[in-house]
Amino acid sequence: MALSQSEVLAGLAEIVNDETGIAAEAVQLDKSFTDDLDIDSISMMTIVVNAEDKFGVKIPDEEVKNLVTVGDAVNFISNAQ
């Protein structure tokens, strides 16, 4: 069963917190991974792989550059489910 957008956001926030220590509440839909959350490309790749495992989706490498905001990632994951 597909998760709701808010459930995907909560799960993604947990992954980001686990990898970077950023508070889960700070991971909001309009935040940019690089500009707002200061997440580097290496951490981003780890987040992507962990998100694939958690949500059972495939996020191709060439797609990662399009995931600028948290909302982009949540939408991609929700649509891919």
């Binding site: 490309s41 290496i42 951490s43 790749m45 780890t46 792989v49």
Partner: peptide, 14 residues
Amino acid sequence: DALKEKGPRRVLPM
């Protein structure tokens, strides 16, 4: 071990 058991994508970027 990660490479052998899960493949290259599961090798940590760090």
